[in-house]
Design a protein around this nucleic acid. Sequence first.
DNA 1: ACCGCAATGGTAGTGACTACCAAGTCGGTA
DNA 2: TACCGACTTGGTAGTCACTACCATTGCGGT
Lengths: 192, 192
Amino acid sequence: MIQTRAIRLFTERGYDATTVTDVAEAAGVSPMTVYRHFPTKEDLVLIDQHGMLVAEQIAATPAAQPLVRRIGSALIEAVTTLTGDRHGGDLTANEQFLLARLRLMISTPALRAKHLDNHYALQQAIVGAIIDEGSDTDAAFHAHAAASACLAAMHTALVRWAEDDGRSELPDLIAKALAAAFGDDVVAVASE
Amino acid sequence: MIQTRAIRLFTERGYDATTVTDVAEAAGVSPMTVYRHFPTKEDLVLIDQHGMLVAEQIAATPAAQPLVRRIGSALIEAVTTLTGDRHGGDLTANEQFLLARLRLMISTPALRAKHLDNHYALQQAIVGAIIDEGSDTDAAFHAHAAASACLAAMHTALVRWAEDDGRSELPDLIAKALAAAFGDDVVAVASE
DNA sequence: ACCGCAATGGTAGTGACTACCAAGTCGGTA
DNA sequence: TACCGACTTGGTAGTCACTACCATTGCGGT
């Protein structure tokens, strides 16, 4: 509720030009109630309830597959469940909300920076899910590089999605970005 | 000068626990002089004078090579000129300064976020250097994915470098991270 | 001695965010 | 009905990053 109003205000007037007090008034609460629910102004846009189950999904993946494929398919699956299946029809309300958030995140420096940092945290979680305690540092290094590159590809896909107004299916875009970054053969199977 | 004092203070007391006024006093100037030279507190750590010539370097690279190799070798070259050649000897003063900055950047959320966003800006510049005005959107999409993944690999290398106290050569680490992300064959030639 | 200009400092304000405390609301219990 | 404790909300006052506007100082050139 507060979040919905906030994103509408941010979209209309701009993020920086909107104060937290504005958001509070629009939502009919006091500024401190806003801070109670959203620790920072940025979190009004960035907090997602969906959590980061990606890491768990990856841990459940057969370890024999190449890292890029394991991570890539987990990302695609997470996004698929997030946006839901829609084949050619209109955007769902959820997707429109995601698009609005995404546009804010990409165009506002402060939000973009924190969003990239969230990806960074996700990367740590992914590597934690892949790597055992005892494994050598080289393995961790490889896992970090692979996870980092996969998330970067995903971010590229998100930007593209926002640019084409959500016309493309997000999972397909992620698969394409992964293929562009790593070569078609490596990722081809990931999108199934 | 101001920057040196600032990084020392941040390292000793922590970034958040140090106010801009503290930095100003330590440098013997007024707070506003600090803001004159560094538009934000974060820039006290993040501003690098070295600029982003990477994009220009890439534009000068033969276009026939695969994107990943073009971007990767440019990154390695940029870092080599930044840290200088040192084969097994002690760390140079410059490298020690870079390490201190890097540790702050990695461990402080606000700095890490802005640092990742700087990489993002670099990515935009790289893609701008690679892609002509008229080229189709798919080409741009591929370039973004490749650049994004390369920068992510570079960041991983930076973290590893900070963790091993600069013992490794940074260019080698970047080459290894690229190889881990993209496969050895793709990048092998990039480090020469 | 004078002028122009760059760098510096002061003042007052805005806005994000915190700490501490007060008050209302609501479910269960005697 | 009266009471109690937990949860949620609101108020006050303060810190700190950052800005806008203006005054001052130092310094090289004429």
